[in-house]
């Protein structure tokens, strides 16, 4: 279970160079500070998939990075199965898996070496790593290419390596940052199936995306982030009801248009 409490992140704004055209000012900009995420609150229960929606630059990635302890919030915090991400990041990292669309693999390692490496970094014993690898590799049907260098693998195979890497330490909470961006239908399908399986296994899943079809098929809850703030928090049905639109894409557009 994940509880997000007043999460905020502020970045310093780099000095604008002379001669650069004046851009339209983002409402989040305040002098030399940029409030990327402001006072975000939501909850995601165990066995639920929460979809994080928002346009490019809305603050989705920043939010996920804070939740996954890659960056520290400026204020507020989140509790992950009761563990505070600010106070105890190392403990949080043991419980989470993180997969983003831009995640790569180590080209000069084999899938087996790469997944085992992450197992060791998670402090697992060699025996446990072997056991988990056997399970995960069977699950993802990866046995045929375990000893090839990742360099020589297809995009779909690499995707499976990344998934195996995410799963090796059996995390209870999973974060997906636009996991299907840039993938073809087949690879996207692998990911979507995988996300659904995670939920069925009773994990907590937070998932950011642009694709409304994925939201409709997967998400139990939706949080819309607009200009770094919570624009909506509730079920997909509630979103439709609130905006009076049947089509989810229309609902989303109405919502962020209204929030403007």
């Amino acid at each position: 279970m994940l509880e997000v409490k007043g999460l905020s992140k502020t970045f310093p704004v780099p000095k604008a160079k002379k001669g650069t055209p004046v851009k339209e000012k983002d409402p989040r900009e305040e002098g030399r500070l940029f409030h990327a995420v402001r006072d975000l609150n939501f909850i995601c229960n165990q066995g639920e998939i929460l979809g994080l929606l928002g346009v490019n630059g809305a603050g989705k990635t920043t939010t996920l990075r804070m939740l996954a302890t890659a960056i520290t919030p400026s204020s507020g915090t989140a509790l992950l199965d009761g563990v505070d991400v600010v106070a105890n990041p190392l403990e949080v990292r043991k419980r989470i898996g993180f997969l983003s669309g831009s995640t790569g693999v180590y080209n000069r390692l084999t899938p087996r070496e790469m997944v085992a490496y992450y197992g060791r970094l998670h402090g697992m014993s060699e025996r446990l790593i072997e056991e988990r690898m056997e399970k995960v590799f069977t699950l993802l049907d990866m046995k045929s290419f375990l000893e090839k260098r990742c360099d020589n693998l297809s995009t779909g195979m690499k995707q499976k390596v990344s998934i195996a890497r995410t799963l090796i330490h059996d995390p209870q909470v999973l974060f997906f940052d636009e996991p299907t961006s840039g993938l073809d239908v087949l690879s996207s399908r692998t990911i979507v199936d995988f996300i659904r399986r995670c939920r069925d296994d009773g994990k907590t899943v937070i998932f950011s995306t642009h694709f409304m079809s994925e939201v409709e098929r997967l998400c139990d809850r939706v949080v819309v982030i607009h200009h770094g703030c919570t624009g909506f928090d509730g079920s997909v049905a509630a979103l439709r009801e609130k905006t009076g639109q049947q089509n989810l894409e229309e609902s989303f557009l109405t919502l962020i248009g209204g929030a403007n």
Partner: peptide
């Protein structure tokens, strides 16, 4: 560049 640094930073290693 390969996008592996972020995942490395999310392992429970100081």
């Amino acid at each position: 560049e390969r996008g592996t640094l972020e995942t490395l930073l999310l392992t429970p290693v100081p």
